[in-house]
Every structure is written in C-alpha cells, then in structure tokens.
C-alpha cells in the first residue's frame, strides 16, 4: 500500500453583506405592498438576493412553503432563511442561517439606493424592513492613527475605515475603502470609499481640506463652501454629488 501525503482542504473566510426581507402579518396584505413596490422597482431582486427573516411570523411548515412559493413567483431569490424551524429543512429549500448581525448606516436619512427604493413606503409603520447596508467588512478592520499625518505621508486602508486622532497636514493623503474620521483638522486630501462605496463619508473637526473625494467623486478646496471652512463637518454623497454639511 502506498502512502500518499494528505492534502489539506483549504477554507477561506469571506464576509458578504446581504439584504434581509422580513415579511409582516397579515401576509396577504404584505404581499400586496410588495407587488406595488415591485412595480416601481422591477429589476431590484434580479440584482439583489435576500435572506428571508421569518422570526416574527409564527409560521407552520405549510405557511412557510406558501410564503416561499409566493416569493418565487415574484422572482425574489432567497439565499437563506433566518428564524425558521429546523424541521422544515429540505433539499429543495434555501439553507437555514444562524442569526446575522444588523448593520445599518448611522444616519437613517441616507439616501442609499436601497433605501431610496423603500422610501415610498417609509411613512408606513409596516414597511418591509430592508435593514440596509453599511458594510460589514468596514466595521471589521478600521485603521487607527494616533499621530498627526504629516505632509507627504499617505495613509491607506484598503479594507475599511481610517480613524485619525490627530490632524492631517496640507500635502498629506488619506485613502480608505470605507469612511474617514479625522479628530483634528483635515488640511490634506481625504478619499473615502476609494474602492467603490457610495455610502462612505468623511468626518473632520475642522474642514480645511485640499481635496475631498467619496467613491471617486471629488471636490477641491475651491469648490467647498467657504462658510464651512474650519468648521466641523461631514462629507457624503447625495444624488451623485458631494454634500458637505456642518455639525452644530
């Protein structure tokens, strides 16, 4: 018998973010609302598959299968089910997921594309809670810088946020996949969402930046409202434009 070295199977951990769809009772009425909403955003579920959250529905197996069937008819692709009964599992059903963790954008006013779609229903208390995004990865690995960022220095976090407790000097550069927080004066360049993230933001205690950019869209210091100069401010994207607002 020949001895063959055993090759280990490699697994890699990777995080994704996904939308969660939480139907509400009574289901028939919820499905009507979903239909009405789909009329306005017909292609939404072809781009986004969802986790189905049935924790609050008190369903039995038949009710669950009916709900799934209803979603299938509306071309909603279900990646997994949260809060289901393990007895319902079957080879042709989506897998059951352990509880996920909510990630939300800090500001509920944010007009992310997803919330914009939901926006029409926002006033109604029973609107489907598409607990939106933010980026789980971003929260995982912020880069903390406890010294001032000097002219000519460049700080880069390709995975998430950059948090700087000092100032960013004129001629310095901060690049983050996520948001940038500067607890001093921002006098250099700050580029948030540099790898494509339109929800990224830039926060600073004193806005004196040479350039700010979110998701590739930028403003130079000339274009920033002079009234905001040296004020605590945040910058984010709104309708494809950089919006800079003051903190009071």
């Amino acid at each position: 018998m020949s001895v063959r070295p055993t090759q280990a199977i490699r697994f890699k951990g990777r995080s994704y973010f996904s939308l969660t769809l939480a139907p509400e009772l009574p289901l028939a009425e919820w499905q009507n609302r979903l239909d009405a909403w789909l009329e306005r955003s017909p292609g939404f579920f072809s781009r986004n598959s969802v986790i189905l959250d049935v924790r609050d529905l008190a369903l039995d197996k038949d009710g669950f299968l009916t709900l799934l069937e209803g979603l299938r008819e509306r071309a909603v692709r279900v990646l997994g089910v949260e809060g289901g009964n393990a007895d319902w599992a079957g080879p042709d059903l989506p897998p059951f997921m352990p509880s996920g963790k909510d990630v939300r954008t800090p500001d509920s006013e944010t007009e992310t594309p997803v919330e914009a779609c939901v926006g029409a229903n926002r006033d109604e208390a029973q609107a489907p809670t598409l607990a939106t995004t933010g980026n789980a990865i971003r929260h995982a690995s912020p880069l903390f810088i406890d010294s001032p960022v000097r002219s000519g220095q460049s700080v880069l976090n390709p995975d998430g946020d950059v948090i700087i407790t000092g100032a960013v000097a004129s001629g310095a550069e901060v690049v983050a996949a996520g948001s940038i927080h500067v607890y001093g004066a921002l006098r250099g360049r700050a580029m948030a969402g540099a790898y494509g993230d339109e929800t990224a933001r830039i926060f600073c205690r004193s806005l004196e930046a040479e350039l700010i950019a979110v998701n590739g869209l930028y403003q130079t210091s000339d274009e920033i409202d002079p009234a905001l100069r040296k004020k605590p401010a945040q910058a984010r994207l709104k309708h494809g434009m950089i919006l800079v607002t003051k903190f009071d």
Binding site: S147, R150, S151, G152, Q153, A169, S170, G171, A172
Partner: peptide, 12 residues
C-alpha cells in the same frame, strides 16, 4: 510650515 511638516514626517 508645510515643508517643515514634511520634514517632521521624515524625522519620524
């Protein structure tokens, strides 16, 4: 001042 800031970065 900006050049000095650059130099401080190099010193560090």
């Amino acid at each position: 001042v900006r050049d000095s800031d650059r130099i401080i970065g190099l010193l560090d």
